[in-house]
Amino acid sequence: MKTDTRWWFVSDLHLGPDGREPRGTAAAITDFLAAVVLADHSPTRHVVLLGDTFDLSGQDACAAEIEAVADRRPELFGAFRTCVAEEVTLHFVCGNHDADLSREQARASLARLAGRGEGDDRVRVHPWILYAPGLFYAEHGHQHHAVHRQPTILVTGAIPTPLAAWIEHRGGSGQHPLARTGAVLRAAGAVRKAEKVALREPYARRIDDEAARIGLPPDALRALAQVSRFRLVPAAAAVAGRVLARSVGRDRQGAYLESAAAEVHRTLSEHGCAVPRYLFGHTHRALLRAVEASDSCYLNTGTWSADVRGRGPDLADPALFPVATIGIRGPQVRGWVRYWRWSPHRQWQGRSPSSENSFPSLTTKRQR
């Protein structure tokens, strides 16, 4: 583990080719990189975009969509290039909305646009997990959400998921409820079939190759691939329970990821590679909680999009953006989740927002 190292984690920016951004997300992250990351003097700096950085339709159009996102947001990609030039490593973890970043052509386009040079490795794409031994485990989190799970996540070319099938059949000839239900059932069947494929040796060899890249024992990653397996009846019951809880105002948004973090911790502990921090995105709700029956903690990076679902201060104040940070200085390691305040007038305020989660804000003052 390197000393004097800083990691910043943000997720769910949902930047699409159409350029729509109710919160000014691209401008906010651009200024964050300049005012916080580049202003930090740690010898080693990493920025982790923990999934759903982009909203991509996927497959063959993915590389072209990355180009379109960059064309609409030249200042952001300029900031990426400045970070890389200043020896900041950018990590893009794939989420359910940008899973096709792992395709070779899309990965190459992103690396070129973000400024990766010949021979350097400062723009990295992670299809599933980012792991730092003794420090943290990070993934987007959709693998633990039944309606988004991709059992064969390491195979390019995503299978249809139940939620995607439901959304795609909202309009046109698929508007009839029976057509939508049929599409969902077919998608659920495809996910169940993929769960069986994930148990077979050809896919297991892919897992072993990915384990070597991640830095985990192969047996540990094989076990992690089985956490949160899709089962139709429990998945349907969970969705029905969520609908009922929401109708009476008792929905605990994202509780499944807290449970998943505990299961991931148990799995890694069994293989001697547990860590003190487990980071996820996906739920759009920033959190910092203890992992059940352990000394580790679960950190959720929330969202920088307008689709905030938690009851934190960013729900009422669109100028607040959640950031998870891990700082290493000598033997000391600290991890926290804070809100960074941004305004389109580029004025930063250092007050601590009130929150059910008691997160202080990131204090940043603009250099005059």
Rank of each mutant, 00 (worst) to 15 (best):
P127Q: 08
A306H: 06
L56W: 03
A316L: 13
A261C: 11
A146D: 10
N357S: 13
L362Y: 10
P331H: 09
K365H: 15
R81W: 04
Y298G: 08
A238Q: 10
P127C: 08
G272Y: 04
T364F: 05
M1D: 12
F32L: 11
P234T: 02
L101C: 09
E270A: 15
H145S: 09
S11V: 01
L130R: 04
R346T: 04
A212F: 05
G171D: 12
W7A: 00
Q143W: 04
K365R: 15
F80A: 11
A260S: 12
V184N: 05
R72V: 02
A316W: 03
L154I: 05
T30N: 12
V155D: 14
G330N: 06
R289C: 07
A179S: 12
Q150R: 01
E86A: 15
A79H: 07
V243G: 05
E87A: 13
P151R: 00
V123G: 06
L320H: 11
H91P: 01
R45S: 00
A293S: 08
L244M: 03
R266H: 10
Q226L: 14
L113V: 08
V48S: 06
V275L: 00
A85G: 06
L135S: 06
I328H: 12
V233M: 07
D219H: 13
E210I: 03
P353S: 10
V275G: 01
G24T: 03
R180I: 01
A28K: 05
R186I: 09
A28S: 07
S354D: 15
R116M: 13
R124V: 15
G254W: 08
G174H: 01
E86D: 14
L268A: 04
L362W: 13
G249K: 00
D100E: 12
T301P: 00
A261I: 10
Y137P: 05
P276H: 08
G115H: 12
R351H: 13
S352H: 15
W7H: 08
R277W: 13
R368I: 00
H145W: 04
G312L: 06
L33N: 04
G51F: 04
S259Q: 15
W128L: 10
